[in-house]
Every structure is written in C-alpha cells, then in structure tokens.
Simulated scan of single mutants.
Amino acid sequence: MALSSVAVFCGSSFGTSPAYAEAARLTGRTLAERGIDVVYGGGHVGLMGAVADAAVEAGGRVIGVIPRQLDDRELAHHGLTELHVVESMHERKQLMADLSDAFIALPGGAGTLEEIAEQWTWAQLTIHAKPSGFLDVAGFWTPMREMLDTMVGQGFVRAEQSGIVSFSDDLDELLTMLAAPPAWTDKWGASTAETPSP
C-alpha cells in the first residue's frame, strides 16, 4: 500500500547521542520529500521538534496533536500545517492513529514506548490493520527486538503476529516494510483482511 501519512513517536528530549537528532531530522525530511504527511505529538522540543522542523523545512505537511495541558506549558510547535489541541493523552493517541497509515518509533522514553506499544496492541486485536516500525538508531531498539523474540518464544505473542512490528536501522528499508500489505492474523486467528482500517 502507498503510505500517505505516518505517525512518528519519539522523545521530547534529544538523548545523549547526536545520532538520535540526526535520525529525527532524516525522518522528517524523508517523509516530506516523499509526500508523506508527518503526524506527531505537536511539541517543539527534543526529537519531536527536530522531526517537525526538518519536515517543515522540506516543504512537507506536518500535523501535530498535543494535549491541552502541554499546550498550556507552551510546549506546542506553532509552525505546523495543522495543530490539534485535545483534552487528554488518550484523545491524542486516538487522533494520531486515525490520521496515520503506519507508525514509527524513534528513540525515546516511556511515552514513546507506550505510544508505539498501544498501536501494536490495536493491530494485534484488529482494531486497525496498521503496521508499526522501530527505527533502530545506534542499536537503541535492539533490546526491544530481543524482547519480541522472547515474547514469541514464551508464547505471549503468536509468531504469525510478529510481523505487526518491523525493525531496521535503515529508514528506507523500514518505510518499505511499513508499506507492505498487512499479512498477520489477529490474536484469535482472523485475517487482517477481514478488518479494514478505519
């Protein structure tokens, strides 16, 4: 399938390695240059801001979704194509999911992990049929890849569902993976083809 919009989950800090900011800027710029809308958490700080700034500078459409509590702290980016201010984190994630064809996690903390894990879970339950990917910058997500192998090996994730998430240290390769038609079954064996994305 052709990707028209991708949600990017990432840190509101820059982290300790310059590679993280470089990957954030590359992601924003690449999506913009491919005509893919960037959907993200709406902030101007950290890796979030780097993704948005790079996409805007490359002429892309950037859609931010930020909870009012964070907007009130003046953390919102006001140079975006669209900025949606919502009332809660739950509304933020739902709207980002509705606006996106796929999801990418860059390095980040608990919030980043929680956001990508929720979309992974929704696909597993066929609430939607949208894939998630981890851009493994400088090995940041390697432990997560190993954790998935453990989940499959210990019987908590079906092997057929492991394709819901992809891992790569190469953005082009990851985008190719995310654009492939969904091929997994849900947790109880129904095909994703039976549950079209909203």
Rank of each mutant, 00 (worst) to 15 (best):
A7G: 10
T185P: 00
W188L: 14
D71R: 08
R73G: 00
G46C: 10
A180W: 02
D53C: 07
R68Y: 09
M48F: 06
A193F: 00
L178P: 01
V6M: 04
H128F: 08
M89P: 02
A52Q: 11
G64M: 07
I63R: 02
L95T: 12
F103A: 02
A105M: 07
V62A: 06
H77C: 08
L113V: 14
Q161R: 05
P67M: 10
L135D: 08
A2W: 05
A190K: 14
L125P: 04
S132Y: 01
G28I: 15
R34E: 06
D98V: 09
R68P: 00
F156D: 01
G11D: 09
F9C: 11
F9M: 05
H77E: 04
V38C: 03
M96E: 07
A190T: 15
G163L: 02
E146T: 14
A76Q: 15
A58C: 11
T192M: 13
A97H: 00
E115H: 09
A193M: 08
L26D: 10
Y40D: 07
D170K: 10
G59T: 11
A193Y: 01
V62W: 02
A193T: 12
A32N: 07
A24V: 06
Y20S: 06
G133L: 03
R34H: 11
H90M: 07
D71K: 09
G108E: 04
L125E: 09
M96I: 12
H44G: 13
S168F: 10
R34L: 08
Q124N: 14
Y40I: 12
G46F: 00
G11I: 06
D186Q: 00
G42T: 10
V51G: 12
Y20P: 00
T150G: 07
E118T: 06
E22F: 03
L70R: 11
V137W: 02
W122L: 13
A190S: 14
S88Y: 07
V137K: 01
Q94T: 15
S166V: 03
F134N: 09
W184N: 07
R68F: 05
I164D: 04
W184M: 10
E115N: 11
D170M: 08
Q124M: 14
M144C: 13
L3M: 12
M151C: 14
L135N: 10
H84E: 07
P18H: 12
I63A: 00
D71W: 01
E194F: 00
A129F: 03
L3S: 10
Q69E: 13
D71G: 01
Q94G: 04
D136S: 15
E118G: 04
R158M: 08
G28E: 11
L135C: 12
P67K: 07
H84K: 11
L174S: 08
A179K: 10
L47W: 03
A50K: 14
Q161I: 06
A50D: 15
C10G: 07
V39Q: 05
I63S: 01
A55Y: 02
